[in-house]
Design a protein around this nucleic acid. Sequence first.
DNA 1: TGACAGAACGAGAATCATTATCGTTTAATA
DNA 2: TATTAAACGATAATGATTCTCGTTCTGTCA
Lengths: 163, 163
Amino acid sequence: MQTRESLQQQFETRCRELGLAVTHQRTVIYRELIATGEHPTPEAVYERVKAQIPAISLGTVYKNVKTFLDAGLLKEVSLHHGTLRLDANTEPHHHMVCTRCRRIFDVPEAEFEPVRLKNLPESGFQIDRYSIEVVGVCGACAAARPESSGLGPASAAHTNQVL
Amino acid sequence: MQTRESLQQQFETRCRELGLAVTHQRTVIYRELIATGEHPTPEAVYERVKAQIPAISLGTVYKNVKTFLDAGLLKEVSLHHGTLRLDANTEPHHHMVCTRCRRIFDVPEAEFEPVRLKNLPESGFQIDRYSIEVVGVCGACAAARPESSGLGPASAAHTNQVL
DNA sequence: TGACAGAACGAGAATCATTATCGTTTAATA
DNA sequence: TATTAAACGATAATGATTCTCGTTCTGTCA
Ligand SMILES: [Mn+2]
Ligand SMILES: [Mn+2]
Ligand SMILES: [Zn+2]
Ligand SMILES: [Zn+2]
């Protein structure tokens, strides 16, 4: 079928652009990631891939997931999956999150027009609340390194303090 | 000063309501959580508290943070801080997140009116994008356990699968 | 106030997610 | 087909979090 072939070819082309070898493992990992409409954990990806490459190691999945994230072929759902972040403000409010230092700033609800889904989800999802995240670079981090295209994983060690 | 006393009294009252002993550690942990306007990690809370109770253990901080979360005295910033969740959909879009099973569903951008801050942040924060999270209970989980007031940490083991 | 029971604590082991190391295999390329 | 760097698999190491268990403290009552 045309569709699958072109996906595979797209992937190979993208790898060449990035200087990445097109390995069997890498190919299957990517294919499974695209195939699922879910938002899987690395462990879940590993399970799917292992069914096709029984000898694959979990470390290889982690390595390639990281590679794909760096290449922009994948995104992380949450910027703060590494460690628990606590909020003593129990009133409804929103957040600004810095992609460099991962600091989190409160934004009052009143700063936005109310958000609502245009069509209620047909899946029967019961909505408790809407939470808005303003993603970007905080003033301090922008001052420290004004250039730097865009997002990318928080890197520079000295800007990486938490709290 | 009146303010501090009443906060302390409020805390003690809340503890009694919850059947929790008012220990020195618990009191200082809570006070420090309220004092910081940040969104600290448990480790950061530990550092602040240790300055006042040098013998306190990190485990005690974790235990009490959990207790406070269960009691609703604190909130977690992110529902998926435990493990990396991958998104093969690299187009801008939003998410619905189930607080019970932690599954994540895509929501097209067009489902919302555009979101914008009414006033640009005076802190010099550079905005890259807005991300909306619809928080609630998915159809499957609601069918499995229709009662249950609201949020609360994802608990029931059988609804806790990821993916 | 003094005694008791259960809750909470501190120390450290255990677990889970993730990363690093290293010797072997493989993809790319001439 | 030979060369070489990249990638792999196994496994050790790390960092965050939870658990276990013996000791200490809080709340309650005589
Ligand atoms: Mn907040
Ligand atoms: Mn998505
Ligand atoms: Zn920053
Ligand atoms: Zn669910």
